[in-house]
Design a protein around this nucleic acid. Structure first.
Lengths: 196, 196
DNA sequence: GTCTATAATAGGATAGAC
DNA sequence: GTCTATCCTATTATAGAC
């Protein structure tokens, strides 16, 4: 029987992850040091190591936290009325990313994926979930708009989903790299590309 | 008058950068240590520090090397005949990335951009150059295919370029993150999306 | 310009008290 | 579970010989 409640443990764990996220935003995924997290959290070394066995385990938890938040964006892209067009779906998804400070960490997680199997597993899983929902939406749209696409709607959706979803990484990377990136123009361009 | 020729200096510099690139491919951009570069290069600490004042300066040089190679991809996408369609342009560009081992480093450079102003400058400059060429190609295609797009071809190209170019980051990220990413299907999807 | 050796520091992780 | 104090390793960078 644990000495403290599970809820307390979980809350502490979240507190530590929050501090680690702030460190990652400031110093980069690889650049965070345990001492920085300790300082940022206001806790002590013992407190952190009681919850996470080391730096890697803590950072994987950060990756999971950041990427899990994408589920909210998926929900926002859902629509109970007529199926959304590809451009509308992606504009909604990217609108969600735009609000979240957390989204600035995502490119760093992608960069870490080839170097850390645990990170890659988390990143691949979430990315796959985003793709699955997008594919379903695209298939629904294609089925509702006969003549816009040729062939079976599901087959079409399977093929184009990886390309359509690329608008999200493209947005995040350009925002990170281009000094004068125009976010509004990007969303407008998205609707323009998928106009037909 | 320098004690050794400029050509010799430049060759040594390239040699060091080559070794550093191999280290980055193995350990990640942030994960490279000077001692690893020293070992990989077969040189000594003194030899490296004679050419680069420190780790950051060396890594910025690596970023410049990796991204500069994209100019070759740009040239490959050029076509003296009829203007290429958006899908064909991007398929050519991505075909170039696919060949190059070096391209695996690009996502890591993008992730570093927000943390290092020098890296951001290099990354933004090259990305801007890619966009400029792509925009010109898109405008030429739009002008040659009246009715495919509405409005002024140049205005249309300005708006859609950031979205079209996203296929490149999308490709690199999915390749890095998804265990069963199908590169051929991605290229096929690209042609499908921009079919009309 | 390059080498060997080393100084100086920062980082990850642990031990033991409470 | 958490805190303080500390160990040990790895890392960046320099000094001085050749």
């Amino acid at each position: 029987m644990p000495k403290v409640s599970d809820a307390y443990r979980a809350a502490r764990r979240d507190e530590i992850i929050d501090a680690a996220v702030r460190c990652v935003l400031r110093d980069g995924y690889r650049g965070v040091s345990m001492s920085a997290v300790i300082e940022e959290s206001g806790l002590s070394a013992g407190a952190i190591y009681g919850h996470f066995s080391g730096k890697q385990e803590l950072l994987v938890a950060v990756a999971e936290r950041v990427l899990d938040a994408r589920q909210a964006d998926l929900a926002a892209a859902r629509n109970d009325g007529a199926p959304l067009s590809p451009g509308e779906i992606m504009a909604t998804l990217i609108g969600g990313l735009r609000q979240e400070q957390l989204s600035h960490v995502i490119p760093q997680i992608w960069a870490e994926a080839p170097l850390d199997d645990d990170v890659r597993e988390v990143a691949g899983r979430i990315f796959g979930q985003v793709q699955a929902l997008l594919r379903a939406e695209l298939a629904a749209w294609a089925a509702a708009e006969p003549g816009r696409v040729d062939g079976d709607p599901h087959e079409w959706a399977r093929l184009v989903t990886p390309v359509v979803v690329s608008a999200a990484p493209g947005y995040l990377i350009q925002r990170a790299v281009l000094p004068d990136f125009d976010e509004d123009a990007y969303l407008a361009g998205l609707l323009q590309v998928y106009r037909r």
